[in-house]
Nucleic acid binder design. Structure first.
Length: 207
DNA sequence: AGTGCGATTGACT
DNA sequence: GTCAATCGCACTA
C-alpha cells in the first residue's frame, strides 16, 4: 500500500516566508486564502485552512491603527507576518496578520478556517461538537485555535508553536464583498472568501 | 474616576 | 429573524 495517501500526512507543512508575503494589505488578504494556520500545543496540533479574511489597509478609518499607535494596537506596526490579537465585546479574541512594513499599522483579520487537524481538541475548546460552529467567525476561530491575548505580537512566520504554512488543497473561486460588522454604510470590497466553502461566515454574495 | 463602545457570539422569539 | 452579555480600551473631566 502507498504511504502517501494524503498530501498532508506525507510532506510536513512549509512555513510562509516573510519575503513571500505580499506587502500590500489587500493583496495579502487574498493571498492568505487557502493557506494554513498551525498551533502546536502539548495536547496536540491544531491546524486549519484559511477560507475568509478581511483587509484593514493603511489609511482605512475602520482600521485600529487609524487613530495612531497606542498600547493596544502597537503589534499592528510590527513587520509583516506577525500576530495582532485583541479582544472585542468583552469575550471574543480576533487574530490578525500584520502587513506592509515595520512601523506601518495595517493587517488582515482571519475570519474563518476550515478545520483540518485537531478537531477533537477544537471541539473541547469551543464547547460544541458541531463542525460548522468550530471555526466559522473570527471569535470562534481564535477560540478553536486556542489563541490567547498573550499571542499578540507573535511571529507567525517562525515555525514552532503558532505559525502560518502553505496552502492545502485546491483553492476554489475567491469572492469579495464588503467587510462585516463595521457600523458604516459604505465599505470597499475588502473581505475575501472561498465562495463555495461551508466554513465561510456571513453572506456569500459575490462581486 | 467615569463613560461609551465595539473587526461578535449565543440564546431566544 | 432579534437582542443583550461583557470588559478592556480610549477618551473626557
Amino acid at each position: 500500500m502507498v504511504e502517501q495517501e494524503h498530501q498532508n500526512s506525507s510532506c510536513p507543512p512549509r512555513p510562509l516566508r516573510r519575503a513571500d508575503l505580499p506587502v500590500d494589505t489587500i493583496e495579502l488578504a487574498e493571498y492568505l486564502i487557502g493557506k494554513t494556520l498551525i498551533h502546536c500545543l502539548p495536547g496536540g496540533m491544531l491546524r486549519g485552512r484559511i477560507v475568509e479574511t478581511e483587509a484593514y489597509p493603511v489609511g482605512d478609518a475602520a482600521g485600529h491603527a487609524f487613530p495612531g499607535k497606542t498600547l493596544r494596537n502597537s503589534s499592528l506596526f510590527l513587520p509583516p507576518g506577525h500576530a495582532y490579537v485583541y479582544l472585542v465585546y468583552g469575550s471574543s479574541l480576533m487574530l490578525n496578520v500584520t502587513s506592509e512594513h515595520r512601523g506601518i499599522g495595517a493587517g488582515v483579520l482571519l475570519r474563518a478556517l476550515e478545520p483540518l487537524q485537531g478537531l477533537e481538541l477544537m471541539q473541547r475548546l469551543r464547547g460544541t461538537k458541531r463542525l460548522l460552529e468550530l471555526t466559522r467567525g473570527p471569535g470562534r476561530l481564535a477560540q478553536a485555535m486556542a489563541i490567547k491575548l498573550s499571542d499578540d505580537g507573535h511571529d507567525l512566520c517562525k515555525p514552532g508553536r503558532l505559525w502560518l504554512a502553505d496552502a492545502v488543497g485546491k483553492i476554489g473561486i475567491v469572492s469579495q464583498s464588503e467587510r462585516i460588522g463595521l457600523g458604516r454604510n459604505v465599505d470597499p470590497p475588502w473581505r475575501f472568501f472561498e465562495r463555495d466553502n461551508p466554513y465561510v461566515s456571513g453572506p456569500r454574495n459575490f462581486h
